Amino acid sequence: MLLILLGVLILHLVILVLLLISTSVNAWTVSSSITTDLWYNCLTSGGGYHCKVASNEDWIQAVQALMVLSVLFCLLSLVFFLCQLFTLVKGGRFFFTAIFQILASLFVMCGAIIYTVMSPDRAVGVEFGYAYILAWVAFPLCLVSGLIYIILRKRE
């Protein structure tokens, strides 16, 4: 049982790191001279690196909010898991933790879908970056983690 709890905890920490990286790193869309993320659009020209704030359009603000909410809900889920680990009665399930983890996965999915649909048309040589891919990797891992919390029972 200790190994299962340790495995779930490590999975949860990996998901949290993936979400933090995908939310903060400047690599949602990349090309040879332009990188964009949820917060900044950066251009490399003449040996310099010039960044300006991302557009004020509603869709990018929705993606920003959803990704920040996913990080917060994943963090809260981790806190609730640790609290329930010590206070939950024997045989109880981690439902509260599971709900927060599944909500975090839904926020990531919605944010990535909105970014995919609403991002400006990609020109030749412009493609999605690794932060975008990490968000999509974090989604199923977060969902599976939430389902594991539903199935998991506390034992002595």
Rank of each mutant, 00 (worst) to 15 (best):
L2H: 02
L2A: 12
L2V: 11
L5P: 02
V8F: 06
L11R: 00
L13Q: 03
V14Y: 08
L16C: 13
L18G: 11
L18S: 11
L20C: 13
S22V: 08
S24A: 15
V25E: 11
N26F: 02
N26T: 10
A27G: 12
T29M: 11
V30Y: 07
S31P: 02
S31W: 07
S31D: 10
I34E: 06
T35R: 13
T35Y: 07
D37M: 03
D37L: 05
W39F: 13
W39C: 00
N41H: 12
N41F: 00
C42F: 09
S45D: 09
S45L: 06
G46Q: 10
G46H: 09
G48H: 10
Y49P: 03
H50T: 13
H50A: 02
C51S: 01
S55M: 04
N56T: 12
E57H: 09
D58N: 12
Q61H: 15
V63G: 05
A65F: 11
A65L: 11
L66E: 14
V68Y: 06
V71G: 14
L72T: 15
C74I: 10
L75N: 05
L75K: 01
S77D: 08
S77Y: 06
L78R: 00
V79S: 07
F80G: 00
F81R: 05
L82T: 15
C83V: 14
Q84M: 11
L85C: 04
F86H: 06
T87F: 12
T87N: 07
L88W: 01
V89S: 11
V89Y: 07
G92D: 08
R93I: 08
F94K: 00
F94Y: 12
F94W: 04
F95G: 05
F96W: 09
F100M: 14
F100D: 03
F100K: 04
L103V: 15
L103E: 01
S105W: 08
S105M: 08
C110S: 15
C110G: 15
A112L: 09
A112S: 14
I113R: 04
I113T: 12
I113L: 08
I113M: 08
I114L: 05
Y115T: 02
T116F: 13
R122A: 05
V124C: 00
G125S: 00
G125D: 00
E127A: 11
E127C: 03
F128H: 09
I133N: 10
I133F: 10
I133L: 12
V137W: 04
A138G: 12
F139A: 13
P140C: 09
P140G: 06
L143Q: 05
V144N: 01
S145E: 10
S145W: 02
G146I: 09
I148Q: 00
I151D: 00
K154D: 03
K154A: 01
R155F: 09
